[in-house]
Design a protein around this nucleic acid. Structure first.
Lengths: 147, 147
DNA sequence: GTTGGTGCAAAGTGTTTGCACTCTG
DNA sequence: CAGAGTGCAAACACTTTGCACCAAC
């Protein structure tokens, strides 16, 4: 399902095995990979690949607009292939699952704020956190009574 | 306008000069301080205060729900006093200014998503990026033509 | 052949922690 | 006067960078 010689490529840049491999993993992934996960997946195909190469290429892909960097609540970044449809994120504080969703209200809100604040808005990001159906039963009680 | 003996206090915890000072700076700030800015401001009043103390107290304030930690696009965190009204952020990519805004659509979207995904949503965060009225004239052209 | 890309190790940045001392309660 | 809180320095996790070698063009 995933081979080194897969089609992914970056125009105007050298087409190395490592770069092609990383790009394939990212675009075929379900999204939200972090650098370390990507590194681990890549090593399965190219055991000698280095973490620096992963970071360097992520930075390149980001600059070229091929992936987006996300800052969830954790200390490190997550990367996902640039989406066709603008989606947002819903994060379960119980199991950590990240669910994507779309909402026409986001676009509407963007237009309202752009007009009200006289901004050119290039990016809108909505992030909701909470507890999914499975986790909501044993959700911590402090969530309601913050001392 | 700001003295060590100001009223801020944390119930159930020892009321040290350092803690009181940090809390006062945070609550009186316009918000969006990062740890280093807070450290610099605090040293003006208490030159011997340490960065560890800043971090330790920020963590405490966060746990007690007195401040919120924000992950903007940068590599470090920003902290702001917990707001009475739920607001969101609009960030100018030109000058870096962070503007707060409110929108009833955010709450509406939250309810829609909670119902659709069967989630208990405890937090909603909307972050828009773009260029303010002053910066929009010299906004980079790559913004449109990502190669 | 150039020179952009790589692997490695070392450095950098923001944050946390172990320890002995200090000061609040 | 006990132990929570502090300052300091060392450790930490994630990311970036300098350098010598390699391989794509």
């Amino acid at each position: 399902m995933l081979s080194k010689s897969d089609s992914g490529n970056v125009v105007g840049k050298r087409n190395t095995n490592q770069r092609r491999l990383l790009l394939n993993i990212i675009t075929k992934s379900a999204g939200h990979l972090d650098a370390d996960e990507l590194y681990r997946l890549a090593r399965a195909y190219e055991p000698s690949i280095s973490l620096s190469t992963v970071y360097r290429n992520l930075k390149l892909f980001k600059k070229l607009g091929m992936v987006e960097e996300r800052h969830f609540a954790e200390e490190h970044h997550h990367y996902e292939p640039k989406a066709m449809t603008k989606h947002h994120h819903l994060i379960c504080l119980g199991c950590g699952e990240v669910i994507e969703f779309v909402s026409p209200l986001a676009e509407k809100m963007k237009q309202q704020i752009a007009a009200k604040k006289d901004f050119v808005i290039t990016d809108t990001e909505v992030r909701m956190k909470g507890y999914c159906a499975r986790c909501k039963t044993n959700m911590p009680s402090e969530e309601k009574c913050i001392a």
